[in-house]
């Protein structure tokens, strides 16, 4: 599959105009667990031009129930494992990786990216990223997730907006500490909401 083959196939499906928007887009994905690994796959398949993947952690056996890694990748950094997996799907997505823990002190790493996906698992880290990005970069779009644990109904997962540029996906209430665990389908549903919100923003469709 040449670069030309890949983009021609995408243009046939998405239209040349929309695919041009996707190809020009740069999206940062903060956290590569159940949310981030699925968001990355969906955006790469849609032909988003550049993905910036940030995570400090390694692939663990406890991740395989919902995250897009393989047994053969146990022990690898998630950034490197996801870069491999995306390259196997399409070698024509530009994937930048940074194996680092995002904190209040290094949010400037996100400076070049117009759309930021919050894909952490820890509630305080989620709040830190949303607040820190909104305060320091009010022009950016933030697509965050909260509430996708347990075996609750699929239909509670939704996308809503906070202000003009923050999108919140999830049911807003199911907490992994109360539910005990996360299951692939509900995490993937929430990640799919995030990825769809990103594509809609790129397409200029800002309503939810």
């Amino acid at each position: 599959m040449t670069r030309e083959d890949w983009f021609r196939a995408l243009e046939q499906r998405h239209s040349a105009d929309l695919q041009e928007r996707f190809s020009q887009a740069s999206v940062a994905i903060c956290g590569l667990g159940g949310l981030g690994s699925n968001v990355a796959m969906a955006l790469a398949r849609a032909g988003v031009g550049t993905l910036y993947l940030i995570d400090f952690d390694r692939v663990d056996i406890s991740n395989l129930n919902r995250q897009q890694y393989k047994a053969s990748q146990l022990g690898l950094y998630k950034t490197e494992a996801m870069k491999q997996n995306l390259a196997e799907i399409t070698p024509y997505c530009k994937v930048m990786i940074n194996t680092v823990k995002l904190t209040e002190d290094n949010l400037s790493l996100l400076g070049d990216y117009e759309i930021i996906c919050e894909c952490f698992d820890n509630a305080e880290c989620k709040a830190m990223l949303v607040n820190g990005t909104a305060e320091n970069y009010p022009e950016k779009y933030i697509v965050a997730a909260s509430g996708m644990s347990g075996l609750h109904t699929s239909n509670k997962i939704r996308t809503r907006k906070l202000g003009q540029r923050i999108y919140l996906c999830g049911d807003g209430e199911s907490d992994v500490q109360a539910d005990g665990t996360l299951f692939a389908p509900r995490v993937m549903l929430c990640a799919a909401h995030q990825a769809n919100a990103v594509l809609r923003i790129i397409a200029g469709k800002f309503e939810v």
């Binding site: 909104a134 997730a145 909260s146 202000g163 003009q164 907490d175 995490v187």
Partner: peptide, 29 residues
């Protein structure tokens, strides 16, 4: 319509007519 910076929580006073949205994040991802 705008995010209140964390550093302003102690000094931002709620006024008549304000519309506030509080999102409390839960864990999992």
């Amino acid at each position: 319509g705008g995010i209140v910076p964390k550093s302003s929580y102690d000094t931002t006073i709620l006024q008549d007519g304000d519309s506030v949205e509080v999102v409390s994040f839960v864990g999992g991802g």
